[in-house]
Design a protein around this nucleic acid. Sequence first.
DNA 1: CTCATTCTTGATTGCTCATTCTAGAATGTA
DNA 2: TACATTCTAGAATGAGCAATCAAGAATGAG
Lengths: 193, 193
Amino acid sequence: MARTREFNEDAVLRAAMHVFRRDGYDGASVRALEAATGLKSGSIYNSYGDKQGLFDAAIDHYGRAVLQARVDRHAPPEAGLDGLRALFVSVLHERDGETLGCLVTNTAVETGGGQAPHAAVPAAFALLETLFEERLRREAERGRLAGHVEPALAATRLLALYQGVLVLVRARQDRGALARMLEREFDDLKAPL
Amino acid sequence: MARTREFNEDAVLRAAMHVFRRDGYDGASVRALEAATGLKSGSIYNSYGDKQGLFDAAIDHYGRAVLQARVDRHAPPEAGLDGLRALFVSVLHERDGETLGCLVTNTAVETGGGQAPHAAVPAAFALLETLFEERLRREAERGRLAGHVEPALAATRLLALYQGVLVLVRARQDRGALARMLEREFDDLKAPL
DNA sequence: CTCATTCTTGATTGCTCATTCTAGAATGTA
DNA sequence: TACATTCTAGAATGAGCAATCAAGAATGAG
């Protein structure tokens, strides 16, 4: 019947996501999105409706292909506290010179002033907080968690700490100091041997 | 010789700061700044050179009139850990419905992608981290700090936690849970009685 | 009181933006 | 091959933006 869509959707979303992480929603011009994705504006509007539609698809892609993938890779259920630590440390490793931070964190801050936050933001926060709490409870059951740690409160604290690290990374704060801080943080969560 | 400037600079900067906190640098239009400050665009350009000049003045004002004032009020040197706790809790109390967050945090995230961060950002981070470390050392000398706490690492952790709380507040995360988390955090820093 | 100086005002300028639209190219089916 | 359909291309549109400018109002030193 008709001509088939030519572009690779994953590659397009990955490229768009990159631009939105770097420049923010407002700062990302459709021309920059064209250049990054290889699509012409006509195709972008044809495929995603408008710039917001492309952003929605990109932040959804971020949740699945970056955030969830990072969790699965570094912090699967059996990896315990070391897995959580690896998850935190992984956000310190961005490609050279890049300070993209996290699309969710950046979006929370950029669009937090007036309107309600983008739905992906509380969703991602809940995903992380639930993950932290579940892993902490699991460790507690196995006697690997320091006695004074209460999983629900510690999960909220880890969520805030995670967002804070992403702010500091975005502003080029010294990553070595952040890495040492995280090492200590997770040592303190562990039950003494 | 000549006519004197008529407007109250503090009031102008306070109003401009409010707009920049709410809408970000890009999101704040000169028209919105006119409406908030009561100045006409000609006066803004005459007084501050350009929008960036007004922003520079506003973030400087923020550092002195909001951040430093908040520190002096809640966490003077003799106030110890309870002072630091009060400082953290104070960022949870914004006027009704407002989710302005912190101009420094918001700026760090908004302008962190490509160019170097605004000079006020690392300056404010250093101010806070130094403050935290100094207060922790002071408490340690008085035997009021839990034994396992290392002031330099804990100061970095508190800086990240502070930024993270400001991200979560900006995205309307539940403030009660954040308050409980902070209570516990500072309890854990205290030496057991 | 005078007038040089500086401030205020608001229309204007030129630019960039998101979005639309038209024309044409590519595709798969029949 | 011919056609119906969908994609691509890029010029065009209109709105909103930061910044400029010219004209007039206010000021205070002399």
